[in-house]
Simulated assay, not measured.
Amino acid sequence: MRRRRIHLFLAGTAVVISALAAAAFTRGYRLNLTPSEPLGLWRIEELQRPVAVGDLVFLCPPMTAVFAEARRRGYLRRGLCAGGFAPLIKTVAALAGQRVEITDHVLIDGRSVPASSLWDRDGEGRMLLPDPGGFVPSHQLFLHSPFASSYDSRYFGPIPDSGLLGLARPVLTFNP
């Protein structure tokens, strides 16, 4: 009898936790488990204006060979975006028409982007190739994260703004 009560309690707890997680997910809450931005609970906030440089956003990466390789290497987590990717949390560093130069760091319209040094190898010694730079095409965004090992547009280049989900707002986060 006691074992049955424990099983019922555990099953009930699992149902309640699942229901809370589903409700949070449908309201735009997401867990960030990558170090590019603080770890913890975030919310996707609808963007009520055009996206701007400096906006911290959630964005689904496109289904391309570059992102498939990034997923294979473990740079991206599994999620509900097309291709099975989790949305990225990145800062918009440049918009369509802006010029991006990539040397040992990133320059946008001639101005150096802080914390934008490039790595030639990832943490496992695999080669990393930088994006060649150039003008950001129409309907594309150049994304950046100040985290030194971040996988961002320094390596994959500008990506379509059609994947933009909204602004990224921290709810309960911490830096490890």
Rank of each mutant, 00 (worst) to 15 (best):
T103Y: 10
T103F: 11
D104S: 15
H105C: 12
H105V: 07
H105E: 14
V106H: 04
L107E: 08
L107Q: 09
L107Y: 06
L107W: 05
L107P: 00
I108K: 01
D109F: 07
D109C: 11
D109M: 09
G110E: 04
G110D: 11
G110M: 14
R111E: 12
R111S: 12
R111H: 13
R111N: 11
S112R: 15
S112C: 12
S112P: 01
S112W: 07
V113W: 03
V113N: 02
P114H: 01
P114T: 01
P114I: 02
P114K: 00
P114D: 02
P114M: 03
P114A: 04
A115F: 06
A115N: 13
A115Q: 10
A115S: 12
S116W: 01
S116A: 09
S116I: 01
S117I: 00
S117V: 07
S117N: 08
L118T: 06
L118G: 00
L118S: 01
W119G: 03
W119D: 05
D120P: 03
D120I: 03
R121E: 13
R121L: 11
R121C: 06
D122T: 07
G123S: 10
E124P: 00
E124I: 09
G125W: 09
G125L: 06
G125N: 08
R126T: 10
R126Y: 11
M127C: 08
M127L: 14
L128M: 14
L128F: 06
L128P: 00
L128D: 04
L128V: 08
L129D: 03
P130Q: 05
P130A: 13
P130Y: 04
P132M: 05
G133L: 07
G133M: 13
G134A: 15
G134W: 15
G134V: 11
G134Y: 12
